[in-house]
Design a protein around this nucleic acid. Structure first.
Ligand SMILES: [Mn+2]
Ligand SMILES: [Mn+2]
Ligand SMILES: [Zn+2]
Ligand SMILES: [Zn+2]
Lengths: 147, 147
DNA sequence: TAAGTATATTATAATAACTACTATGTACTA
DNA sequence: TAGTACATAGTAGTTATTATAATATACTTA
């Protein structure tokens, strides 16, 4: 073996969640897992033009929905612009830079006391997501440089 | 005086933030403040049909933007469906019921340790919002009844 | 208090991000 | 190696919102 990092077996992952293996699903899931970051349906669609020129936008959306429903990826809706898809399935939250629009992960050291609040109003929490807006390091530096 | 609760002086509020007083702005801000809850641009537009039948959808959007920019109302984007507008300017977060889609306020007892995390990655936090998804009390009861 | 002007409103068109529909194609099953 | 249930492609439709431009009006100032 030339490299220690094992490539994920995408067809096997798809089968494991009961999804049929198609070239479209294979390519889209592979791309999301490879790139690790957050990407929109349109970004995925445009990236695929090279390898799958006949891929339709509907298929991108259908695939992303299937992958999300199966729990293989996570959909992040910040309300501004398109949904972003994330291969990182660990529970984490997001900070978005209002300048460059880039999305950054963050992990909470201690979980906030939502359970207490939820119990008071008898709300059954399924999931929660902390959305932070602000300015990233790079954009802060850029603003200082301009001054 | 017949009532102790003083009606808010809407024109005065608009002037105080440097906005011109128009019948459209007066009516929209009054409605949002009166109803207290969360409402979409379309809900506001439809409500206004009675009193301002010539009101245009653009004006609703423009007004909501002006009011938000002025800090008189807050826009909440959950990513599903339309933006909702909130007259409640106190810092608070939201729980949405996945069954009935109703939005509930909640107030955090202790602020989560976001500042530490932000300092580590040198992110300048402007605002944050905790979005909780789950099932509200009423819908939980309804589900038990059906069983 | 009557222009004057900057701003607001209206109506319509345009856009972004999906979602629905349906004919065709294909991955899995037995 | 069919048969069939499911997936894909292409197109049309929807929803929520933004852009444009002509008309109207709130506030200023003489
Ligand atoms: Mn992430
Ligand atoms: Mn609220
Ligand atoms: Zn940035
Ligand atoms: Zn409910």
């Amino acid at each position: 073996m030339d490299h220690d990092i094992k490539e994920p077996d995408i067809p096997e992952i798809l089968k494991s969640v009961g999804l049929r293996v198609t070239p479209q699903r294979d390519a889209i899931l592979r791309h999301i897992i490879d790139r690790k970051g957050h990407m929109s349906a349109d970004q995925i669609y445009r990236f695929m033009q090279g390898s799958l020129p006949n891929l339709s936008v509907s298929t991108v959306y259908n695939t992303l929905k299937s992958l999300s429903d199966a729990g293989l990826i996570r959909e992040i809706k910040f309300g501004d612009g398109a949904s972003l898809f994330d291969a990182n399935r660990e529970p984490h939250h997001h900070m978005v830079c209002t300048v460059c629009k880039e999305l950054f992960d963050f992990y909470l050291l201690a979980t906030p006391d939502l359970t207490q609040i939820a119990q008071q109003v008898h709300f059954h929490i399924e999931e929660y997501h902390i959305q932070v807006k602000g300015i990233c390091d790079a954009c802060q530096r850029r603003m200082i440089d301009v001054k």
